[in-house]
Nucleic acid binder design. Structure first.
Lengths: 249, 249
DNA sequence: CCTCCTCTGCTTATTACTTAAACTGTATAA
DNA sequence: TTATACAGTTTAAGTAATAAGCAGAGGAGG
């Protein structure tokens, strides 16, 4: 069953085994000096500290004093390792059962996800390319979908809504990291650079120049769920209310 | 002025010159066999046809029958070329003046942006990393910000709203491309793979299994502005109405 | 006209990376 | 004891970015 029909998985068949299969320890031969878990943890630490571009098979192997090729005993390739890193960095989603309504649940969900992206900024970038979801990632989606159960949304609408929220959280995380400049390797002066460009070409960008005068591109106000998230949740609320044919609740 | 203070631009100073400076033809020496414009156009064609990973300096130079290094006479490096590719592929934003209200304007804006991403799928991925915005990209932001002028939103709220919409369009484009599988190089069976995983582990993902039964992860319905976009715009509408202290309009 | 300087386009070489294939040595099962 | 599965290394092939420097074109200054 675990090794069943890889056809649907396209070129990602090797990731399926690692992400979704069980890992049994070998019976014979010398003791492994490493493990998938240790490798993944180390790779994550590197990506956290120096960004995903700094992460390479050489770099990880060097961390153990091993040769690059030794890693290939544990993971089939770099892309598969990244897939594992993403799922491990995400970790399990929060339990939302205790929260009263779908909106509070999604607020908590979004906040926690943002927290993860904040700790592992590279994840926000890495999840945007074509990839197979791991168990943890799918559990996050599941948690958000469960929050929307009973709201009257159809299955397609539910996953659409989850997608809207999660893509917002992703861009929110990237933006706040850029603005805070707490990510070492990224441009810490993003806001200043944009401001300078708009300033210099203010004739071409009047609305932005105006917006800048009333606070745009300034530091992010981290207090509570911010404007964008409220927008997204309000929007979902409108659609739910529509379904119910009643008022917003 | 054009060559003023590169300090704010951090490591992206070389991109500023290319994206925002004027390009004057050289006065002396042999006639250039290439030009920045031709190189960028060719690079875009390659990325369109084969995806961004297939794009390399070698590949582009090979297209002209030149060596890799010849390109470095025109662009300082690969990242700067990608910056140029993005801004060129985006092109100028649509004129939204003729449309009646902010919502229609943003609907058109989002649709056109989606169209661009659809034509150049790699752009949707490329714009997510730390980058300097080019004139066209900033013009898109300007157009959307202008649509929200007079709604009562503050400058910060306006750019937040634009960010929410554009990040949604980005993820929408990636999702619909994955589902349609019209992007050659990406996993065309994304939906099928997810479906298979949820099916197999349906005990762990009951809400998703349920959602799947009522249409989730199926093909995207391309008719009109879809669920996610309506959510986002409704949400912005709620915030605007709040500002105005009146009903949704 | 001649010379020089600049700029183009090319060659060579360096560095960094992924990964295939074959090899060496080890620990366990039979 | 021996066959086998496995760990980690060596070697090497292939791709890619890009630094450094060379050959030659051709306008500018004398």
């Amino acid at each position: 069953m675990a090794e069943a029909g890889n056809g649907v998985f396209g070129g990602r068949a090797r990731s399926v085994e690692l992400l979704w299969g069980r890992r049994e320890p070998p019976k014979r031969g010398p003791k492994p000096g490493l493990s998938v878990e240790v490798i993944v943890r180390t790779a994550i630490a590197i990506a956290d500290a120096e960004g995903l571009p700094a992460f390479s098979m050489q770099r990880v192997a060097g961390e153990f004093g091993f040769t690059t090729m030794s890693l290939y005993r544990y993971v089939p390739g770099k892309t598969e390792l990244i897939d594992l890193m993403i799922d491990t960095a995400l970790g399990p989603p929060p339990d939302l059962a205790e929260y009263p309504d779908w909106r509070t649940k999604l607020e908590v969900w979004a906040g926690e996800l943002h927290e993860v992206y904040h700790r592992h900024l590279w994840v926000a970038r890495a999840v945007t390319d074509d990839r197979l979801m791991g168990p943890n990632e799918l559990a996050w989606v599941e948690a958000a979908a469960r929050a929307l159960l009973g709201t009257g949304l159809t299955g397609g609408e539910t996953t659409d809504a989850v997608r809207v929220v999660s893509s917002h959280v992703r861009s929110w995380a990237q933006y706040s990291a850029d603005m805070a400049g707490d990510a070492g390797m990224t441009g810490r002066q993003w806001g200043a650079a944009i401001a300078a460009l708009i300033e210099e070409h203010s004739a071409d960008y009047p609305a932005l120049a105006e917006a800048m005068r009333s606070g745009a591109f300034g530091p992010v106000d981290g207090s509570g769920p911010q404007f964008g998230l409220r927008c997204v949740l309000d929007g979902i609320g409108v659609r739910i209310a529509e379904r119910r044919g009643g008022s917003t609740g």
